[in-house]
Computed example of a mutant assay.
Amino acid sequence: MKVLVDNQRCEAHGQCWMVDEEFFPLDDDGYSALPAGGVDVAPEMEDTARRGVDACPLQALRIE
């Protein structure tokens, strides 16, 4: 499982960050700071990843 961000959609609402600030880091302007290639999700973090993706009001995050 991997979490990817579409930086064109992200508008810095920070809802993913509110789910888990370490897994969903933000840059200095409040936009997602996930790497361009996405983040591999450890099995114990899958629930957190899903909740963070679901929290995005603009669907800028997705699971692959």
Rank of each mutant, 00 (worst) to 15 (best):
F24W: 12
D28T: 04
P43D: 14
F24G: 08
P25C: 12
R51L: 08
G37W: 08
I63L: 15
A49S: 06
D40N: 12
K2A: 10
V19L: 02
M18R: 10
D6M: 06
M1H: 09
K2S: 06
Q15N: 12
R62A: 14
V41Q: 07
W17V: 01
F23H: 08
N7D: 14
A36N: 15
E11K: 08
I63C: 13
Q59M: 12
D20Q: 05
V53M: 04
V3A: 11
A55P: 00
V41K: 06
V39G: 08
D28K: 08
V41H: 01
E22D: 12
K2Y: 09
R50P: 00
C10G: 09
M18E: 07
F23T: 01
V3E: 02
D27K: 07
G52E: 07
D6T: 06
D29Q: 13
D20T: 00
E21Q: 15
D27E: 10
E44P: 07
D20A: 06
M1Y: 05
L4F: 09
V53E: 04
T48C: 15
L61C: 03
P35C: 03
R62S: 13
E46Q: 11
D27P: 01
P35Y: 03
Q59W: 12
M18D: 05
I63H: 12
V5H: 02
E22M: 08
A60P: 03
F24I: 11
D20H: 05
A55F: 01
Q15L: 12
L58N: 05
F23L: 15
V19S: 02
P25H: 13
L58S: 02
Q8P: 13
A36I: 14
E22K: 12
R62G: 08
P43S: 06
V41A: 06
N7H: 14
G37C: 09
G14I: 04
D40Q: 13
P25T: 10
Y31R: 12
D27Y: 06
D54R: 13
A60R: 04
L4S: 07
Q15H: 09
M1R: 14
D29R: 12
D27R: 08
K2H: 08
C56Y: 00
M18Q: 07
G38E: 15
M18W: 01
V53K: 04
A49H: 07
L34D: 06
T48Y: 10
M1N: 12
N7I: 06
G14S: 07
E46W: 02
S32A: 15
G30P: 03
P25Y: 11
E46N: 02
C10H: 04
E44K: 09
D54W: 03
C16G: 00
R51G: 01
V39N: 09
L61D: 01
E22H: 09
V41C: 05
R9K: 14
H13D: 11
A55W: 04
D20P: 00
L26F: 05
E22N: 09
F24T: 09
E44L: 06
M18V: 02
C56E: 10
L34P: 00
M1L: 14
D40M: 14
I63P: 00
S32T: 14
R62N: 09
L58F: 10
E22L: 08
L61W: 05
A42H: 07
T48N: 13
D6P: 06
N7E: 14
P25F: 10
L4P: 00
V53G: 02
A42T: 00
T48F: 10
V39I: 13
C56D: 11
V5Q: 03
T48I: 14
